[in-house]
Computed example of a mutant assay.
Amino acid sequence: MKILKGNPTPEELAALVAVLATRTAPAPPAPDTTRAGNWATYWRNARTPFHPGPGQWRASAHP
């Protein structure tokens, strides 16, 4: 970097370098937005199986 005009102070040069460094920094990586496949989504949302026992047939009708 070369200053062609003026006589900047060390603080002004530091401010200029800080601004240029933030402008040229690489962008942060984008978050992973991939979704689970259809089978994974199905099994994640599937209900747990019913357990046999007294009165369970009544409980099967009420989620």
Rank of each mutant, 00 (worst) to 15 (best):
N7P: 00
N7T: 13
P8R: 03
P8M: 01
T9E: 11
T9M: 01
T9Q: 05
P10T: 02
P10N: 04
P10H: 01
P10V: 03
E12L: 12
L13M: 09
A14R: 13
A14D: 15
A14W: 01
A15G: 07
A15M: 06
A15P: 01
V17F: 06
V17I: 08
A18P: 06
A18M: 05
A18H: 05
L20D: 07
L20Q: 14
A21N: 12
T22L: 13
T22K: 15
T22H: 15
T22V: 07
T22Y: 14
R23G: 11
R23M: 05
R23E: 07
R23P: 00
T24L: 05
T24N: 06
A25H: 01
A25F: 00
A25Y: 00
A25D: 10
A25M: 08
P26N: 12
P26I: 03
A27E: 14
A27V: 07
A27K: 07
P28Y: 01
P28V: 08
P29D: 02
P29G: 02
P29V: 10
A30V: 08
A30H: 12
A30L: 09
A30S: 09
P31A: 09
P31N: 04
D32Y: 03
D32Q: 11
D32R: 04
D32C: 13
D32E: 06
T33R: 09
T33D: 14
T34W: 00
R35F: 07
R35V: 11
A36M: 14
A36T: 04
A36I: 03
G37V: 05
G37Q: 08
G37H: 09
G37L: 08
N38H: 10
N38D: 13
N38A: 08
N38G: 09
N38Y: 06
W39A: 14
W39I: 12
W39D: 11
W39G: 09
A40Y: 03
A40D: 13
A40G: 12
T41R: 15
T41H: 10
Y42S: 12
Y42A: 09
W43Y: 10
W43R: 14
R44D: 06
R44G: 14
N45Y: 05
N45W: 04
N45T: 05
N45A: 09
A46R: 13
A46N: 11
A46T: 15
R47K: 12
R47Y: 10
R47W: 08
R47E: 12
T48E: 03
P49I: 00
P49G: 04
P49Q: 07
P49N: 06
F50Y: 12
F50L: 08
F50W: 13
F50Q: 15
H51P: 00
H51M: 01
P52H: 03
P52M: 02
P52S: 08
P52N: 06
P52C: 02
G53V: 04
G53Y: 04
P54A: 11
P54C: 11
